[in-house]
């Protein structure tokens, strides 16, 4: 993705990981120290947001926090709930560094799109 945007380096990788995704954030952080070697993300900071387990109960209209193996409505206790949060495994965003492109600084908020069909980040 960094290469697709002609970036020189990845400086930060933001992830969202829920406990029901099956991925342990701590282990992923350790694996990342090895996986990033020799890549554009070699010096990147891995920023992991651990999302809470939240369920929605349609019967009583309650949204509540739940534990990993007790996905029950916090109000009425039913198991007929929908998971609202907790199974994410998402790459939320990347912070990229670019070669000398001082003009980017002027792109600013709501800069008009250029006519060449490219998206200037």
């Amino acid at each position: 993705m960094a290469a697709a945007h002609d970036a020189r380096q990845v400086s930060r990788i933001k992830l969202a990981i829920g406990p029901l995704s099956g991925v342990e954030a701590e282990l992923l952080e350790r694996a990342f120290t090895v996986a990033r070697m020799g890549t554009l993300a070699e010096t990147a900071i891995l920023d992991i947001e651990e999302t809470p387990v939240i369920v929605w109960c349609e019967a009583c209209g309650t949204q509540s926090h739940a534990s990993l193996n007790r996905l029950l409505c916090g109000s009425c206790g039913t198991w007929r709930v929908t998971l609202r949060s907790g199974d994410e495994l998402l790459l939320k965003s990347l912070e990229l560094e670019f070669p000398d492109q001082p003009e980017v600084a002027e792109a600013g908020r709501g800069a008009p799109a250029t006519g060449d069909g490219e998206c200037h980040v």
Partner: peptide, 24 residues
């Protein structure tokens, strides 16, 4: 936006980014 550790540009909140939200 950085170049060799130097911040060459900053963008305030709510502007444009490469938000990807792609499943890993």
């Amino acid at each position: 936006i950085k170049d060799r550790g130097r911040v060459v540009a900053t963008r305030p909140a709510d502007t444009h980014s490469i938000e990807v939200l792609t499943g890993i």
